[in-house]
Simulated scan of single mutants.
Amino acid sequence: MKLGVFLVLFGGRKLEEALDYVAEKGVKAVEIGTGGNPGKRHCDPQLLLEDERALKEFKHAVESRGLVISALSCHGNPLHPQQELAQKDHEDFLNSVKLAEKLGVPVVNTFSGCPGDHEGAKYPNWPVAPWPNDFQDVLKWQWENKIIPYWTETGAFAAEHGVKIGLELHGGFSVHTPATLLRLRAAAGEVIGANLDPSHMWWQGIDPVQAIHILGREGAIHHFHAKDTVIDPINVNKYGLTDMQTYDNMLDRAWQFRTVGFGHDLKTWADIISALRLVGYDYVVSIEHEDGLMSINEGFSKAVDNLNQVLIQEQLGEMWWL
Rank of each mutant, 00 (worst) to 15 (best):
L9V: 04
L9T: 06
G12M: 13
R13D: 11
D20C: 13
V22A: 04
K28Q: 15
K28L: 13
A29Y: 07
V30S: 02
E31S: 11
T34V: 03
N37T: 12
L47D: 08
L47V: 14
L55D: 13
F58D: 02
K59W: 02
V62M: 10
E63G: 09
V68E: 14
V68Q: 09
A71G: 11
L72E: 00
H75N: 06
H75E: 05
H75C: 05
N77L: 08
P78C: 10
L79Y: 01
P81L: 07
E84N: 14
E84T: 11
L85W: 10
Q87H: 09
K88E: 14
H90D: 15
H90I: 07
H90K: 11
E91Q: 11
L94G: 01
L94I: 15
L94R: 13
N95A: 09
V97W: 03
K98F: 05
E101V: 07
K102W: 02
L103E: 03
V107P: 01
V107M: 02
N109E: 14
C114G: 05
H118S: 06
H118I: 05
H118Q: 02
H118K: 10
E119R: 14
G120K: 07
A121L: 06
P124N: 11
P124H: 08
P127L: 01
V128Y: 03
A129V: 15
P132C: 11
D134G: 13
F135C: 10
Q136A: 14
L139K: 11
K140L: 05
E144L: 11
K146Y: 12
I147N: 07
I147S: 07
I148D: 00
T152H: 04
T152L: 05
F157Q: 02
A159Y: 04
V163R: 11
G166N: 09
H170R: 02
G172C: 09
G172P: 07
V175R: 03
H176S: 15
L182R: 10
R183H: 11
A186H: 05
A187L: 03
E190R: 07
E190Y: 07
A194G: 00
H200Q: 12
H200A: 03
M201A: 10
M201F: 05
W202T: 15
W203L: 13
Q204T: 09
V209Q: 08
A211Q: 03
A211D: 02
E218M: 10
E218T: 12
G219F: 03
I221P: 01
I221C: 04
H222L: 08
H223G: 03
H223V: 07
H225V: 08
A226G: 08
D228I: 07
V230R: 10
I231H: 02
I234E: 14
I234A: 05
N237T: 13
K238A: 15
K238R: 14
K238S: 13
L241Y: 08
T242H: 12
T246A: 15
Y247P: 04
L251T: 12
D252K: 13
R258W: 07
H264C: 08
D265H: 05
L266A: 01
L266W: 04
W269K: 11
W269L: 12
A270M: 14
I272D: 02
V279Y: 10
G280R: 06
D282Y: 14
V285Y: 06
S286P: 06
E288S: 12
H289Q: 15
S295A: 11
S295M: 13
I296N: 06
K302H: 07
V304P: 04
N306Q: 03
N306K: 09
Q313E: 15
G317W: 10
E318K: 12
E318D: 15
M319D: 12
